[in-house]
């Protein structure tokens, strides 16, 4: 189900972006399934979330600054691999979903 967009931002407020956290990363969020953050790009959002929930960035982004291949990140319905990865632009009311890839050999 698509999540409802947040109310229109008023001038001067920071952007509110809902981020859905998978089970395996909820140790970083005190068990919360959904956290809120801000940032004009996915990269900035990850930094903001990491500030609130230390350690989460290391689970998403490699030392080389790329998204881990083990995780899929979506902005609304789009896999960010097709929209610029960490450079994907965000706007207020966007919903970000993080899911571990289900894969193996």
């Amino acid at each position: 189900m698509l999540r409802e967009a947040s109310p229109t931002p008023t001038e001067g407020t920071t952007m509110a972006i809902e981020v859905r956290i998978p089970t395996i990363l909820r140790t970083h969020t005190g068990g919360n399934k959904i956290v809120s953050g801000s940032g004009s790009t996915l990269s900035a959002l990850v930094d903001d979330i990491d500030g609130q929930h230390p350690g989460i960035k290391g689970r998403l982004v490699t030392d080389e600054g790329k998204l881990h291949r083990f995780v899929n990140v979506y902005v609304n319905d789009e896999d960010v691999r097709f929209t610029g990865a960490l450079d994907t632009e965000l706007k207020d009311g966007d919903s970000v979903t993080i899911l571990p890839a289900v894969a193996g050999g």
Partner: peptide
């Protein structure tokens, strides 16, 4: 190798 398609994965979890 196996891998769930990324779009399928999102729909499944939703």
């Amino acid at each position: 190798f196996y891998e769930f398609d990324s779009g399928d994965l999102l729909r499944l979890y939703r």
